[in-house]
Simulated assay, not measured.
Amino acid sequence: MAVQPITGMLRRGLITDLSIALGLGFAFGNAFWYGYHVPRTNARDNYYKKIEEQRATRQGI
């Protein structure tokens, strides 16, 4: 036989591609979530908390 069969290469490549894609997706998802979303959410919550405290102080509550 002049050409070797290519059995297993497609499966190995698919597993590698999926592993890399899922790993990078998870890494970048965490980077977005904890690097951008959580700090922005905390900043927003702190802003509204400060506004609410100012309102309560003005009303004497």
Rank of each mutant, 00 (worst) to 15 (best):
A27Y: 10
Y34L: 06
L24A: 12
N30T: 03
N42V: 13
G8I: 03
G13A: 12
G35S: 03
T16E: 07
G23W: 00
L24W: 06
G29Q: 02
A43F: 03
D45L: 11
L14N: 06
N30G: 13
T41C: 02
A2W: 01
G13K: 09
A43N: 04
G35M: 05
F26C: 10
G8T: 05
G8E: 06
R40A: 13
I20H: 01
T16S: 09
P5S: 14
I15Q: 04
I6R: 12
N30V: 07
G13E: 02
D17S: 14
W33D: 06
A2D: 09
V3F: 13
M9H: 09
L22G: 02
R40Q: 13
A27S: 11
I20F: 09
G8F: 07
G25N: 02
L24M: 15
V3T: 14
P39S: 07
H37Q: 09
Y34G: 03
G35K: 11
Y36C: 04
L22Q: 05
A27Q: 03
N46G: 00
F28Y: 11
R12S: 04
G8Y: 05
R12P: 00
V38L: 15
F32D: 10
W33S: 06
D17T: 12
V3A: 14
V38Y: 07
R12G: 01
I6N: 04
G13T: 02
V38K: 13
A2T: 05
L18Y: 11
V3I: 15
R40M: 08
L22D: 01
R11K: 08
A2H: 06
G25W: 05
R44H: 01
H37P: 00
L24F: 13
G23N: 02
L18E: 09
W33A: 12
I15H: 01
G35I: 02
I6W: 01
V3H: 15
L24E: 03
A31H: 08
T41R: 12
N46L: 03
L18N: 13
L14Q: 11
T16Q: 08
Q4F: 04
A21C: 10
D45N: 13
V38G: 05
Q4K: 07
F32V: 15
T7R: 08
I6Q: 10
W33H: 11
A27C: 09
